[in-house]
């Protein structure tokens, strides 16, 4: 089987759009939604999540034959936590400021349902390379959504993107609600609305 066979590509792309973890399964919004008022923090958080998901998926699929069925959940949790600890330590070592701002949320990647969901559903049954792609796809699909929420929130809330001012005209008043927690809920709700109505259209065309 070649590395980039059609099937492997499908595994990767399905996770990004068709089976996107947030829209289709509503998994794992807990730990990351809180940091979406700044694009840069969101980006760091997403990178951390992708690393953990990919590493866990590969590792679980490597040792899946040695994990006894009854304790597989706790084994997965331990593997995930080890990788989360590594990510947290790396972040503290190389970008202490961001690590301080994110605070406890990095640790909460451990309880993010996406990571465990992919490990349990996919990595336990597949070989390392497809698992790698699956983890990467799920992580990227997830990150795209979070960035889609983060960018409007930062623009409307602070008038900046990644701390660079975009809206500089006079008379502009920052929308405080966007940087407050309700803003994230409202954004995600509206985003789901938009995507669902687009999805309906797509499904309709396929029927024809």
């Amino acid at each position: 089987m070649s590395l980039f066979s059609a099937e492997n590509k499908k595994i990767f792309w399905e996770n990004i759009w068709k089976e996107n973890p947030i829209f289709r399964q509503i998994l794992g919004i807990c730990s990351c939604l809180a940091v979406t008022n700044l694009v840069f923090n969101t980006f760091i958080m997403c990178v951390g999540l992708i690393v953990v998901t990919v590493a866990t998926n590969v590792f679980v699929s490597l040792i899946k034959d040695y994990i006894p069925g009854r304790i597989r959940m706790i084994t997965q949790v331990l593997i995930i936590t080890v990788f989360v600890t590594i990510v947290d330590l790396l972040l503290q070592a190389f970008s202490y400021e961001v690590s301080k701002q994110l605070g406890a949320y990095v640790g909460l990647i451990a309880t993010n349902c996406i990571v465990m969901g992919r490990a349990e559903v996919f990595a336990m049954k597949n070989r390392p390379w497809p698992s790698f792609l699956d983890g990467l796809g799920a992580g990227i699909g997830y990150s795209i959504i979070l960035l889609t929420i983060a960018i409007p929130r930062e623009i409307l809330g602070f008038g900046t993107v990644c701390h660079y001012p975009v809206i500089t005209s006079e008379g502009w008043v920052a929308w405080n609600i966007m940087i407050m927690p309700p803003g994230a809920f409202l954004m995600l709700g509206s985003l789901i609305w938009i995507v669902n109505s687009m999805g309906k259209k797509v499904a309709h065309e396929e029927k024809k």
Partner: peptide
């Protein structure tokens, strides 16, 4: 609205509750 049913409306209501 059809496309807002389920999760969508739940998120919006949560937002209003947070407000």
């Amino acid at each position: 609205p059809k496309a807002l049913e389920g999760i969508g409306i739940t998120m919006i209501i949560t937002g209003i509750m947070a407000l």
